[in-house]
Amino acid sequence: MSDLVGLFPYWAVIILMMTGLYIVIAQGNLVKKLIGLGIFQVSVFVLYIAIGVVDGATPPILSPGFNSYSNPLPSVLILTAIVVGVATLAVGLALAVRIRESFGTIEEEDLLPLTVPELPPEPEARP
């Protein structure tokens, strides 16, 4: 039983991750998809940070009076991953904006008939 309590944070994070993944798969709006992706990624970050926690320790900033520190490595990895996440988001949003301008919609449902391979190529209107 105590095992289960010890694993609870992981499971909570897993539920979060799966909600994010669900949004990515199920939602038709492109911006919403990106937001879902963000939730998915952030949840993974929480998972990492949870891995690095040490009971009764403090953040890994050395300071007299403490001798037990949490693991710095997950933090470092996640710092990188956060940046990667925001970079992906920026590019994704820019794409969504262009898609909206070009197709007039960002709903997957409406885009589908406009992007079937059988259609003749249509260059994007240049401003």
Binding site: L37, F40, G92, A96, L114, P123
Partner: peptide, 26 residues
């Protein structure tokens, strides 16, 4: 996405790849 100069479907192709690629990376 730069293929949009010839065919606008490049944009949706890039977006699909982005979502899948980011999911895969995650």
């Amino acid at each position: 996405a730069m293929g949009a100069g010839a065919d606008r479907r490049a944009l949706t192709a890039a977006f699909d790849y982005l979502v899948l690629g980011a999911t895969g990376a995650t």
